[in-house]
């Protein structure tokens, strides 16, 4: 057992967790009264789930060798479609319960439609994921704007708003949803047969196809699932902000890619652990909240986020070079 323990302690995830602890302690020392305040810890606990779910969504796609640049606009288009129906039904006299139910179902359905669109273009037409989702990003944004006319949709029943803003037994509901999603994604990617298939597709789609696996179908479903996660993140955002707008969460795109890469997911596909992504999400969340608390301009936070991505990829490159040279 001992060498096993040693190996684990030396693993990427352990190092990553150590980095998280160091940053957390650092932030606490920097601003003990505010960073460690109950208010801040709670607000992090409410913010982290939507970001975490988007990062997991991005990770699943990257593992197959793709990328989803439309992930945040999938979330917002979904929330706008569902939110539009929900607020109209509610305003039109439908019961809150029914409006919320229909709203949520439509949000999930909307995200699935976005996923089907991306999945079809990527898996069946064969457009590279980067360009397909780049186009889709603008396309979804356009449709969202078409519905909202540039404004925000509001007027949701209080029951819907509660999802993102209440706690059960002291645990915020979004956090409960996140933990549920996290467990599901872990089981899906690292324990299920489809997850195993996705890693193989990301490593070598040709061999996987030659092994009798329907690569296209698997890729299509991947985009469906990833978009469904984006839809869930959309529900949390809409509920937390008490409105739906196309630009919500747009800074999460870069952070989601960063979280996946920082967490050890290979940008080329085929490698990556759910736990790594989760720790990276924690790190990024702590950094962004911490910078916010010490009063760093929010635009500069974006600069830091961009730098994190570049630095992590640079380090990955350098370690790869070193390994290559050592061989």
């Amino acid at each position: 057992m001992k060498p096993e323990l040693k190996r684990r302690l030396k693993s990427k995830e352990a190092v990553l967790f150590l980095i998280f602890v160091v940053i957390f302690v650092f932030m606490s020392i920097l601003s003990p009264t505010r960073f460690l305040s109950l208010y801040n810890l709670q607000s992090m606990a409410y913010q982290l789930p939507e970001f975490g779910i988007l990062a997991l969504s991005m990770m699943i796609v990257i593992i197959t060798g793709g990328i989803n640049l439309s992930v945040t606009y999938t979330a917002t288009l979904a929330m706008i479609i569902g939110g539009f129906a929900m607020s109209h039904m509610f305003a039109g006299g439908s019961s809150a319960g029914l409006s919320v139910l229909v709203g949520i179902i439509l949000m999930l359905a909307g995200s699935l439609a976005c996923g089907a669109f991306n999945g079809y273009v990527i898996a069946y037409i064969g457009v590279t994921p980067m360009l397909a989702t780049l186009g889709a990003m603008t396309f979804f944004e356009g449709i969202s704007l078409q519905v909202t006319r540039g404004g925000a949709i509001s007027g949701f029943p209080i029951e819907f708003i509660k999802i993102g803003n209440t706690a059960v037994l002291g645990i915020p509901v979004p956090m409960i949803i996140f933990l549920f999603v996290l467990a599901t994604v872990y089981l899906f990617l690292e324990r299920s047969r489809m997850g195993a298939t996705l890693y193989m597709i990301g490593s070598n789609p040709k061999v996987t196809r030659y092994s009798g696996i329907n690569v296209r179908k698997n890729l299509f479903i991947t985009y469906l699932i990833a978009s469904l996660l984006a839809g869930i993140a959309g529900i949390l955002m809409a509920s937390r902000y008490n409105s739906a707008k196309e630009s919500y969460g747009s800074s999460y795109l870069l952070q989601a890619v960063s979280a996946a890469v920082l967490g050890g997911t290979s940008i080329a596909g085929g490698e990556g652990k759910v736990i790594g992504t989760v720790i990276a999400v924690l790190i990024i969340q702590v950094i962004s909240s911490g910078l916010n608390i010490i009063g760093l301009n929010r635009y500069l936070t974006n600069v830091v986020m961009g730098l994190i991505l570049i630095v992590v990829l640079t380090i990955n490159f350098l370690t790869r070079e070193k390994q290559f040279r050592n061989n």
Partner: peptide, 9 residues
């Protein structure tokens, strides 16, 4: 090497 095995796995 290109069709039979996923070499990185």
């Amino acid at each position: 090497l290109q069709e039979g095995l996923v070499l990185s796995k």
